[in-house]
């Protein structure tokens, strides 16, 4: 094969706009003479796909690493490839999101699988994929991929740990999904428990959570409240009541309130905070105290709640006892 004649013919084809013929001939040339720099350069020009163009140019640069023309062109091609990849990713993600919103979870799942196959570093795709998978074990795998991509994402890490912890406790798993806004999945968990529970209490609990989930589903754009807000809000009642009663005991004069009742007020505050805190079981404070699952364990939650009740009730009893002691001499 006369490579220089063939190369000239290929160049002529390329210049005449006959890309297909030029491509075939150039491929043949580089097959027989892989060290032909000009042939690689021309092939990178006429190749159809961006990946092929880049591959040809990389081969040319392997032969002449400092060729400025080839280097400049490769840089342009890389930039073009990046833009194309970004656009494709965006397109895939948009399609997946649309399918998911329309309730076509299987279709969304397929698209997301394709996305993560093509773009392994797409964290959002891994996260979305985890939401379209039914099996908790596979969800954990998808989330682990996402977590590896940004190891500092503590929220993701927490979610992963909770999922691992609750993978066999479907009621808690349902709660986890509910808190993440994955209502359909939470419902599935509760329904499974309700259908298979051998224990009547467990079934009743699953039914109760299902009913609560239905009510939540009625709220458009449901977004769970910040747990700190719930915690503070619910602490108010018993503290306010105690303060008023103590003020009454002192005849509306704070200086007349015995110091014991002031001290007991601390117990009311602490008890109310503990009691209200059971409504925010995965608050950061609980997680710092009891690990990542916070107050999710029912026994721990009950213990904290009971402690809260006792701490609230004791000062009330003390105050009433002192007030009754004053009242008795005047009664009858």
């Amino acid at each position: 094969m006369d490579t220089s004649t063939s190369l000239n013919t290929a160049i002529a084809f390329a210049r005449a706009g006959k890309r297909r013929e030029a491509q075939d001939l150039l491929r043949l040339i580089v097959k027989h003479q892989p060290s032909n720099f000009a042939a690689w350069l021309w092939l990178s020009d006429v190749a159809e796909t961006l990946d092929e163009q880049i591959a040809a140019l990389e081969s040319a640069l392997f032969l002449m690493p400092h060729n400025p023309q080839a280097l400049a062109r490769l840089e342009t091609l890389y930039a073009q490839q990046e833009t194309t990849a970004k656009e494709r990713q965006q397109e895939l993600m948009r399609t997946a999101e649309a399918a998911r919103r329309a309730g076509h979870t299987k279709e969304a799942h397929g698209i997301l699988l394709r996305t993560v196959e093509e773009f392994e570093n797409n964290q959002t795709a891994w996260l979305m994929l985890s939401e379209t998978i039914d099996d908790p074990q596979d969800q954990i795998a998808a989330l682990e991929h996402a977590s590896n991509l940004s190891p500092k994402n503590t929220r993701l890490k927490t979610r992963l740990t909770l999922l691992k912890r609750f993978k066999n406790d479907w009621l808690s798993l349902g709660d986890l999904y509910r808190d993440d806004g994955q209502m359909a999945r939470a419902r599935e968990m509760y329904m499974t428990v309700a259908a298979h529970a051998t224990d009547g209490l467990e079934r009743a609990e699953a039914d109760r959570r299902l009913a609560a989930l239905d009510r939540l589903a009625e709220i458009p754009d449901f977004k769970r409240y910040d747990q700190t807000f719930t915690w503070i809000r619910l602490s108010f009642g018993s503290i306010a009541l105690y303060s008023l009663l103590a003020l009454l005991f002192g005849g509306f004069n704070p200086a007349q309130i015995p110091s014991l009742l002031y001290a007991a007020g601390g117990s009311v505050v602490l008890g109310s905070v503990l009691l209200a805190g059971t409504a925010a079981p995965r608050h950061i404070v609980w997680q710092l105290l009891f690990g990542i699952v916070g107050l999710s364990a029912p026994a721990l939650r009950r213990t904290i709640g009971l402690t809260g009740i006792l701490l609230v009730l004791a000062p009330y009893i003390l105050l009433m006892n002192m007030a009754i002691a004053r009242l008795l001499p005047n009664l009858f």
């Binding site: 009663l245 005849g251 004053r326 009858f332």
Partner: peptide
Amino acid sequence: SLGVTPRAMMSPDGWGAV
């Protein structure tokens, strides 16, 4: 004694809380 008697309640020695 057990109803709200204002004078008794306003007194520091009263039994208002009860």
